Simulated assay, not measured.
Amino acid sequence: MDRRWPHDRPHDRWPHDTVDVLGVRVSRIDVAQLRSFVAAAVKERAKLTITFANPDYVRKAQRDHALRDLMNGFDLNLPDGWGVVLAAKVFGRPVPGRMANDDLTDDLFGQPAEEGWRVFLFGNAPGVAEQAAENVRKWYPGLAVAGTLHGHWADEDGRLPAKTAERLVAEINDASPDVLHVGLGTPLQQRFVSEYRDRLTAPVILTCGAYFEHLAERRDYYPAWVLKLRVGFLYRLAREPRRLWRRYTIELGSYLARVLLHRVRHGKNPAA
């Protein structure tokens, strides 16, 4: 079922069209609207939380309703991966295109550089955020990086201890960023943002998974031909076969089968 989801929560100030992809609401916005939302949030100091829906997260959210609710609790759920873009089209409510972190680098850092906003990079292994920050400063002259923190703070249960999280929130707030990138992996990053969104002073908060690793390597993580052919998943599989083979074979096949089965059983989403 498709909804506009305009005021499901008291803090939702960002009404927009969405498509329901197997229970996860995916935002049907383009880059121009995203930039407009971000600019308004920074100017008005209004909270805007953004996460990304890829086939792996959607598949997991089908089984884990807590993860589904975490993802649907964000103001924007951008389509990360052609599998989600394809699903939206199959369901009759296409999105403008893929909007993964890698696709938005010029917007996520170019816009702050143009506007004089401060960004903070929190997450990934020790040293990665620092290298990513060094690179984005080079690529976007004038960009103000308010600070960096690595993301290896979880306990053996995969959670951030409360005292640790409170210290991290205080350190981030002391840096006074306008845009905060959180790369802790799913679902830890979504849980952190959801639990501390009202205590974090940054108006714009985005989750970003392993994005800093890409930025620490080079600006265009995916070569142009990979993006043109829409085979980013094959490119990543070739680079990290041991870690990703199951996700991009068995699990991706399972996801696509569920999309097609849902389409057969329920038809297209009704127009908003």
Rank of each mutant, 00 (worst) to 15 (best):
L256W: 04
G267L: 06
A66T: 14
L149G: 06
P79Y: 13
P10Q: 08
D157H: 09
D75W: 01
Y255C: 05
L34V: 03
T105M: 08
I50Q: 15
Y235Q: 08
R13L: 11
Q190M: 03
K268D: 11
L215S: 12
Y248I: 12
R28H: 10
W14R: 04
Y57R: 07
V231R: 07
R137E: 13
L227F: 02
R247D: 14
L121F: 07
A113R: 01
T49P: 01
K138Y: 02
R263L: 08
D103T: 04
A39W: 00
V31R: 05
Y222H: 09
L160N: 08
G127M: 07
A39C: 01
V31T: 05
H16D: 02
A238I: 05
A53S: 15
L244R: 01
E195R: 01
A272H: 11
L67K: 00
W14I: 07
R199P: 11
L252K: 03
D157F: 00
G123K: 05
D8M: 01
R9F: 15
K60M: 15
Q33H: 06
G73M: 04
R239Y: 05
N101F: 08
E171I: 02
V136T: 00
E240R: 05
W245I: 04
H181G: 11
D198Q: 06
M99R: 01
S36H: 02
N77P: 00
